[in-house]
Nucleic acid binder design. Structure first.
Length: 272
DNA sequence: ACTGGATCCTGACTGC
DNA sequence: TGCAGTCAGGATCCAG
């Protein structure tokens, strides 16, 4: 369940266990993820010291000084946890990074939509990272930006804000939630949004993500240790997964539709 | 340059 | 129970 808040929660959860530790060895059980794990990754990483645990969008970045960076994406079903070398590996535990302090960073990903890659480049120059839009919580993501980017765009506003080249980290759940908070119909064409409504949407996206990170930080604190815990934020969702339930604002039943083969939930009365 | 659709993969759930 | 069909929190690639 990796939305941006959870990737950030994972980052904060694993960092204290492995920062500034050396890799003792790497165990790779399944190379075939979204893209294959580089064959020589284990030998490259052995004896390198982890200097920084960063995040860009939904990508987790393990920096090893000037040597290079491991790029991890959790896809739809990936998760990370800290365990020990003696913790038995499950069916979908694809890679273990074993550190000198005997802590293991373990990636689990049943659907294999995630990836583990290596780059020597400055990570911002990597193909997957270089074209990403701004971080939603940075000042760079503001009403002027969203308004300018959306002009003449005919795709729906929901599809637009989920496009990682426009802004990173807005997944299917938070797209629906943000549009509800901003009172915008998800079917509306991106280019038809007024400047004030762009501002409203930017504020909503920031607010929703900040709230989710805050909740992830408290309720999913041990997400990296106990796989599969239900997220507390699920109870805070106003429209996502609530088809045919009354709108919390007006009482009209929440509608579920499909956009780009993804479910969208919204209130036909509150969102125009 | 944009848009819509196909696609990678497994598991949970529903209905027959 | 078993089996087929549908649906999942992502995002790239490709054709038009």
């Amino acid at each position: 369940m990796p939305e941006l808040p959870e990737v950030e929660t994972s980052r904060r959860g694993i960092e204290p266990h492995i920062l500034n530790k050396k890799i003792k060895h790497v165990v790779i059980r399944q190379y075939q993820l979204r893209w294959p794990i580089p064959k020589n990754l284990a030998s490259i990483l052995t004896d390198l010291k982890l200097s920084q645990v960063a995040r860009r969008g939904k990508y987790l970045l393990l920096h090893f000084g000037t040597s290079g960076t491991v790029i991890i994406h959790l896809g739809m079903s990936g998760s990370l946890r800290i365990c020990t070398p003696s913790t038995p590996a499950g069916k979908h535990d694809h890679i273990d990074f074993v550190f000198s302090n005997n802590k293991v960073l373990r990636l689990t990903d049943p659907r294999k939509f995630g990836c583990v890659l290596w780059t020597k480049l400055p990570v911002d120059d990597h193909k997957l990272i270089s074209k990403l839009g701004p971080e939603p919580l940075n000042d760079e993501f503001n009403a002027d930006y969203l308004y300018a980017q959306s002009r003449k765009r005919t795709c729906s506003i929901k599809t637009f804000i989920m496009n990682s080249h426009v802004v990173v980290g807005v997944g299917n759940i938070y797209a629906s939630e943000s549009l509800f908070m901003a009172g915008i119909n998800p079917n509306r064409k991106a280019g038809s949004l007024s400047r004030p409504r762009c501002e409203k949407l930017v504020i909503a996206i920031k607010k929703i993500l900040e709230l989710a990170i805050q909740q992830g930080g408290t309720t999913l604190r041990d997400f990296t240790r106990e796989h599969g815990q239900p997220g507390y934020f699920a109870q805070q969702l106003q429209v996502y997964g609530r088809a045919n339930e009354p709108c919390s604002s007006c009482g009209k039943l929440i509608k579920q539709i499909s956009q780009q083969n993804r479910s969208t939930f919204y209130c036909t009365a509150c969102q125009k």
